[in-house]
Design a protein around this nucleic acid. Structure first.
Lengths: 189, 189, 189, 189
DNA sequence: CATGAATGAGAGTTCATTCAT
DNA sequence: AATGAATGAACTCTCATTCAT
């Protein structure tokens, strides 16, 4: 159902997609759909939740690598961008439709987003502890946000960016600028 | 009307806002509203168009400063971030709702986005020509995208970022990382 | 609209009548119907309210007669039964569907019912004061309830009663039994 | 099942009660419920039928008492009111929901109602034959209807009546007025 | 025999849009 | 030129009923 919904939301957006379409695309009747959900909003929540779950799981498994120093950060970014690339539609839908979630669900989802940011921060902080980069806590947080968003923009600016680069180039170039940015940032500080 | 619509869209999103509400908030009757627009989508288009127009105008006027070298780029970024900060609601609405525009309007709006990217690119290219930074054309384009998005994320991640920084700090830190990123990028290339 | 709704409710009951049917029978579109009401329950409330209003108004105007003693009571009962007879469908619908009203509306309507009971009580109390009947306060209240219900049963048992009597006979017979009941009740007390 | 249904109907009415709820409250699965009934209307019919059956049975057993004259009538009324009081919910549901029965079932149920009226009539006619009251056939029938309805109103006006009286007082007062009404009715005739 | 997942017709309600005034 | 009553297509959601297991 989530797969079907993602597909429809990608094409027409959440609001322009009807529950009947979701049901049909999921392969069950409207009645059966409503056995699984209580309101249409629930579909959106399920979609968002499942995407976060998958992204996070895949990210977590990738973060357990045993490289050291700056390499570890590079690998993490590469992996994250890879995941985003493979789940483009899902990620795109999620960032375009979260705002339509009811308040409570929104908070829940934003918490997940916070968790993800923390994961990235942690990888950066690791480099700080290893003394391969020198950043204040504020700079670490900002860098984490930047990486996260640079991943997301691969989807929401794809109409432009993906004409210029493939994911490998994009990753390479972003890492390049990003790493120089933070390794030199110490000086500027 | 645009002001009223932006306000409503910020609060409830485009789809959850009714034409009646837009009319009322604009001080028109529903009948009069439909003298100015043909469909509800037109409102969204007008909103997006007017925001682009304003952002672009303000940006353009700021780019005619007479500083040289890297300072010019720093000033441009600072100005751009300033504009974004002052037009937070507008920018937020725009990036969250563009996707709801009908195809034709979408293309038109994306073109504006391309123009803006070009403006930023141009400022960066100027630095390249001045030989204060050394970037390939591909790196220039990516850098422009990054700046643009870092501006936007001030709004769409405000629930998190604006708790950590005020706009001055945010600008300072981003410029710091960004400038080191591109000035050192030559080496990494 | 109320007229149309009463007619439909008489035939099929409130729950089996659709809003579309109400709209059609009222001569407007479903959209226009919803300009006048907020929910389907509102229709029922409007129906009940308007019936009470009419019954009460007609009753009130009839109670201002200048006869004395027991005649006054007889006239009141006769008038009340007359009103019920003329508004049979309305009264029937009301007593069969009130329970479907949402809580708040129900209280409001029951208050009206209490008012009507009080009106009848007052006429009886007048006879008590005139010393043509001798009843305790409890007996007065019960007598009022009885009259009220004997009026209503002319509608809700019409499948049986109206085969046996016309409204004149019914009124005459009921008054007969009722008046003897209360004029002799003193003794039994 | 009937017990469960009565309980639910009392709380929410027939139409607002779902078959699922009936099944659950009865301890069946929805599938099993439909082994016993063909349509939801059948539930209502079963409920009504079983209530009539019980009221009638209890009434019948009480009518075989051996008192004579007016006492017999008083006892009958007292017993009937007693039954009503003990089966308040059932009686209330029945009178509020019969109208929702499909035509055929309705006729069947109304026949039962006729039977009950006849039973009461018979008790009154017995008094007429015993020459303790003097009533025409028309008066007998009306009196029977009145008693029946005065029983029912103990439930459907309980929000008001049961605040004023307990069942013993109510019975005593009603019998008082009723008996004087019919014993004196001869004169007024 | 009992179950409950599956169905889909149909309900109430909304709202973009029109057009007579 | 401005209005807002009127429209009805389209939406979300419910629930009586069935039937494969």
């Amino acid at each position: 159902m989530v797969k079907a919904a993602v597909h429809l939301f990608t094409e027409k957006g959440f609001h322009r997609t009807t529950t009947r379409e979701i049901a049909k695309a999921s392969g069950f009747s409207i009645g059966t759909l409503y056995e699984y959900i209580r309101t249409k909003d629930d579909v959106l929540f399920l979609v968002c939740d499942s995407i976060y779950e998958e992204v996070q799981t895949r990210l977590q498994s990738l973060l357990t690598d045993d490289t050291k120093g700056i390499e570890r950060l590079k690998n993490a970014i590469t992996s994250y961008f890879q995941v985003i690339d493979e789940m483009q539609d899902e990620v795109l839908v999620m960032y375009q439709e979260v705002k339509s979630l009811p308040k409570e669900a929104l908070s829940y989802v934003l918490e997940k987003e916070v968790e993800m940011t923390s994961m990235i921060e942690e990888v950066i902080r690791y480099c700080v502890r290893e003394e391969v980069v020198f950043l204040t806590e504020k700079q670490v947080k900002l860098a984490a946000h930047n990486i996260l968003v640079q991943g997301q923009m691969w989807t929401f600016r794809r109409w432009s960016i993906q004409k210029l680069y493939n994911i490998e180039d994009y990753t390479k170039l972003q890492i390049e600028q990003f790493i120089s940015g933070i390794t030199k940032a110490q000086v500027a500080d």
